[in-house]
Amino acid sequence: MSSYPPSGPPRTTTLRQRLADLRGPAVPPRPLDARALAALAANPGCGRRALLDGAGVDKTALAAALGSPAPFGQSQFAIVRGNSFEAKVKGDGGAALLRLVHLHLGGAAEPPGPGARVPDLTAAGPEGRAARTALALREATAAGAWTLLDHPMLALEVAGTPAYLEPDAVVVHPDGRWTVVEIKSFPLIDGAADPAKVGAAARQAAVYVLALEKTAEKLPAATVGHTALLVCPKDFSNLPAAAPVDLRRERSVTLRQLDRLTRVEELAAALPEGLSFDPQRPAEELTEAVAAVSAAYAPECLSACELAFHCRERARAADEAAALGRSVRGELGAFTTVGEALAAAAGHGSPDDPAAAALHRAARLRAEALQEAACRC
């Protein structure tokens, strides 16, 4: 049996205390990074992820305690290849990278010269690095010269606490515009890349744009570009190529989801007192705790969320149609389970329901096609 809710009168707690109780008394909060915030934007309807990330729960440890660990992370080969490519792109004082930015997003500005500015962003701790980055951005904007910020540290307040984000690079243009640069190891083949990977990179870059906008609020001469530059290997070589990526849609979606995270108190208040996601608790209790928060599983979660395997198992056990994918779920209309859809395909749905009629017709056509194939054999 579960150990919650506890006996006795209910406790009144602050939000910080409540979130600490959800993590576990001895569990430090896991800081949010750009990848986690981008994943929130990819699935804005998932209250489970919003609450767990807002509370700083270590979802990797939670998934392992639930018995459904997710094999996240790149291979060592991919990490080495990515680091080697990034070093090549930023070599020689970032000359190649600045040329790509000027070529694709430079506008009427003069091309960067050989002595472009690359300020030192070294400081103690993430707070110090964020302050040093903000100072470098102000100085570069005032100087009106091409400036490359290599791995700057940006701060963005999320759910009342600062999240520290580290983009690959930020370029300051002579006109005061700031451009986010994402360097990835997947290839640009004939000028195009895998749409799913480009989408993930765009969502991540949108988080950096939001953080830069907070810094730019105090600088009237600065503007944050809503077009990032994606730099990847050209075709199957190690030569850098680039493509601009419009971030306006991703920025809007991410901003809405971050606004939702700032109301994480509402999600926490709906849970029973004493509920905890502490990985040290028994798996049965953790399963019940996770089930108390609504989820919106889709197959895309498998590449973005540590709890995806657990949520997939539960979605399949509940016969949820969403487990087949968002596009399939959208086509099924009012049918929320696979069983309901199969019943409609068998002719047991309402004839006035367009989805039921379409499923029944599709099932009839499939049966006819199979029968014709069997006769030809």
Rank of each mutant, 00 (worst) to 15 (best):
Y4W: 15
P5H: 01
P10T: 03
T13Y: 02
T14P: 08
R16F: 08
L19R: 06
A20G: 13
A20N: 03
L22H: 11
A26M: 07
P29K: 05
R30C: 11
A34S: 15
R35T: 15
L37T: 10
A38M: 09
A42M: 05
G45S: 10
G47N: 13
L52N: 09
A63M: 03
A65L: 00
F72V: 12
Q76E: 14
A78M: 09
V80L: 13
V80K: 15
S84L: 11
E86L: 06
G93Y: 10
A96C: 08
L98E: 05
L103G: 04
A108N: 12
A109I: 04
E110M: 08
P112Y: 06
A116T: 15
P119E: 04
D120N: 06
L121F: 03
A124S: 14
A134E: 10
L137Q: 13
A140K: 06
A140G: 13
A142P: 09
D150P: 04
P152H: 11
A155P: 10
G160D: 09
A163N: 05
V171H: 04
E182I: 01
S185A: 14
D190M: 09
A192P: 01
A192S: 08
A201W: 07
L210V: 11
A216K: 01
A216C: 05
L219Q: 11
T223D: 13
V231R: 04
P233C: 00
A241T: 02
A241E: 10
P244L: 04
R248I: 03
R260Y: 11
E273D: 15
D278H: 03
Q280T: 12
Q280D: 12
A283K: 00
A283Q: 01
C305T: 03
R312F: 07
A315R: 03
R316I: 06
E320F: 01
A321M: 10
L324E: 13
R326E: 14
V328K: 05
A334L: 05
F335Q: 04
T337D: 07
L342W: 12
H348M: 10
G349C: 00
A355K: 00
A357M: 00
L359C: 04
